[in-house]
């Protein structure tokens, strides 16, 4: 199968079950809403070293923020529910509460919840207060620019992490242009994030290493500079590879983002689109590239 002359390899991305949360972060204006969201979702590229994967998501056109101010959605993904609580406490506490004019609301209607605002409230040193409306409790924590409003509980649900595809190109410029185009298109898909810097990762990994105590290492079959030294996965004419990883609150959203991203990345200079998997033995979800683009 080819799109715009780009080969779509007959393979699949293998993705895993994670826990997801969605926060709506608002502020006095868009700049500060985004600043707070970026602070909270910073250093959250990979679960391997960051404790969670996170990113921002534009609000759908038909979704208004709970307080009517400018806002963005911030999505968080962890491997366990307990980790989610720990991560949100740190990231909302240090990234959102500290940011001028911010407020933080639950953006995921889920049966299971974790307490975040209900713990951060103690920062108020006894002067915090709460408001309960329709079962939603907001904490008002006094801060130096007024008060920080944070919802007591945030919904958490099972989610999907690790959707992916690789862009193999005849040079770095073509790979980067294709990846940027893909990420731009994928950002319009609600409920997904691309957690790596700018949505793109160059240091794809494999789950093995020759060093004791090192569990993951560089995805050497895809590294062009050592092509003659390894069992390379790179076809002739491919000089650079970039990967896009997708986490989503639902399987359908991840599939849709991959479909959109693969389509947008089939640009001149791109040789092949492929995906990473472990033979289907580890992950619960499989996203077959050709099925996605056929849909």
């Amino acid at each position: 199968m080819r799109i715009n002359g780009v080969e779509i390899e007959d393979t699949f991305a293998e993705a895993f079950e994670m826990w997801g949360a969605r926060l709506i972060i608002t502020a006095h204006n868009e700049r500060w809403a985004l600043t707070a969201a970026q602070a909270a979702t910073g250093f959250a590229t990979s679960i391997i070293g960051c404790g969670c994967e996170a990113g921002t998501n534009d609000l759908p056109a038909d979704e208004r923020t709970p307080d009517g101010r400018p806002g963005v959605a911030a999505l968080f993904f962890t491997t366990s529910r307990q980790n989610m609580e720990a991560q949100l406490l740190q990231r909302v506490g240090q990234g959102v509460m500290t940011s001028p004019t911010s407020a933080c609301y639950n953006g995921l209607d889920a049966g299971d919840t974790i307490k975040v605002g209900g713990k951060l409230r103690f920062f108020g040193d006894g002067f915090q207060s709460s408001k309960l409306l329709d079962g939603r409790r907001l904490w008002r924590v006094p801060v130096m620019d007024g008060e920080f409003v944070v919802e007591e509980n945030f919904g958490v649900s099972k989610a999907v992490g690790g959707g992916n595809f690789f862009i193999m190109a005849e040079d770095l410029e073509a790979a980067l242009a294709a990846a940027e185009a893909a990420v731009t298109a994928m950002r319009a898909v609600p409920g997904v994030i691309m957690p790596f810097p700018g949505g793109i990762v160059r240091s794809g990994s494999k789950v093995s290493s020759r060093y004791k105590g090192q569990h993951v290492s560089s995805n050497t079959p895809y590294c062009p500079t050592i092509r003659p030294l390894v069992e390379s996965a790179l076809p002739d004419g491919v000089e650079a590879v970039l990967e896009i990883v997708i986490d989503g609150l639902e399987e359908e959203a991840v599939g849709e983002a991959m479909r959109v991203g693969v389509g947008a990345s089939c640009l001149p200079g791109v040789v092949r689109i492929t995906a990473g998997n472990y033979g289907g033995s580890l992950g619960r979800y499989q996203f077959h590239l050709r099925d996605l683009v056929d849909a």
Binding site: T26, H28, R64, P66, D67, G68, R69, A103, Y105, K131, L133, D134, R136, L138, R140, G146, E147, V149
Partner: peptide, 19 residues
């Protein structure tokens, strides 16, 4: 105490409107 813009109040009124 102060003059400010209470975000919780905006939340309150919007929820009432939605109900």
């Amino acid at each position: 105490a102060c003059r400010f813009q209470p975000a919780f109040l905006r939340f309150h009124l919007r929820r009432l409107g939605e109900s």
